[in-house]
Amino acid sequence: MGDTNQFSRTPVYAALVLAVVLVVGVLIGARVVFERAGDQPVALPDLPAGQADSPECTGLIEDLPDSLGDFDRAELAEPAPAGAAAWSKSSTERVTLRCGVDAPAQWTEGAETEESGGVEWLPVTDPDTDLTTWYSVDRSVVVAVTAEGFDPTEELAEPVAALPAGSVERNPLPLADLDTPEAGGCEEVLAALPGEIGDYRRVEAEAPRAHWTARGLPPVVAVCGVAMPESYAPGGQVTEINGVNWFSEGDTLYALGLDEVVAVSTPPVGADGVLVALSDALKEAQ
């Protein structure tokens, strides 16, 4: 009877062993496929990069390391853009580098930079993802490095630092071309504006303008004493925030109904919080 029970269990044991082998095989197979996917050529789109073919960028690409932490240098899919390189750990985890690109719109007066490996970098975050791009802003050519959840600038600093030093021209601030014909009464308004708005901190700016910056984000700019927006007409649609009426014209917001018209430029992400803080300050100044 005991032998019969043992005999009846044998197929069960064999099936369990086979199932374990199959599971292990599937896992190993999936890992191999995943790793091979990471070895596939990386396709990079064309970007404005007027200096990508420069001798500086050509030399930089040749001097780049074969690995960045767990990321290995990857082949670029054809047609490969000039001045570009990539490293991959999987089919979705990559670090990319572009040399000779234009400075980003965030490179304005007061933009917050950080030093890494002797290079001054401007970080720019993508509000829709965890991607960050670091731009070198103290070299003769601008180098852009993009990664997700990983800061590769320290490991890339040595070849980037070998580039000739240079000063990258800053972009004008938003609303820089707005005239201020009614700026005479703006002193109290500017004094009432907050020193901080969320992650933004106020930096020095020439009256009647105010300017706030935050790491990796576009600036917030307020200009006091501007003319009424041309597209506004009595009865036009406005949004009331804490007692201040805001009118939108393109990318510019106007605070109306106050002693002075104030124009504001703010990033789309977090704009509500910025307008709430500014509304409270503007209302207090009246």
Score class of each variant (00 low, 15 high):
Q106C: 03
P229D: 02
A183M: 10
G225I: 01
S265E: 04
N171W: 10
D70T: 14
V262I: 13
V12N: 11
A205N: 08
A14S: 06
E112V: 13
E158N: 12
P55H: 03
E204A: 15
D280H: 07
S167F: 12
E169K: 12
P234E: 11
E115G: 08
A144D: 05
L178D: 08
P208S: 07
V262C: 05
D259K: 11
S67C: 10
P219N: 06
G184T: 13
L60P: 02
D272R: 14
V160D: 01
D3G: 11
V221D: 05
G38E: 01
A52F: 04
P229G: 01
S116V: 04
V221Q: 01
A162Y: 00
V33S: 08
A191V: 11
T252F: 02
T132H: 03
A207E: 12
Q106L: 01
P123V: 00
A271H: 02
W87K: 08
A281L: 00
E204T: 14
A80Y: 11
N242T: 12
A285R: 07
G273T: 05
E155D: 13
N171D: 12
W107R: 02
L278N: 02
F7K: 14
A222M: 04
A222T: 04
D138N: 13
D280K: 09
R73I: 06
V141F: 01
G83C: 07
G38W: 09
G184D: 15
A157S: 13
G50R: 15
V262Q: 07
W134I: 00
D179S: 15
G198I: 00
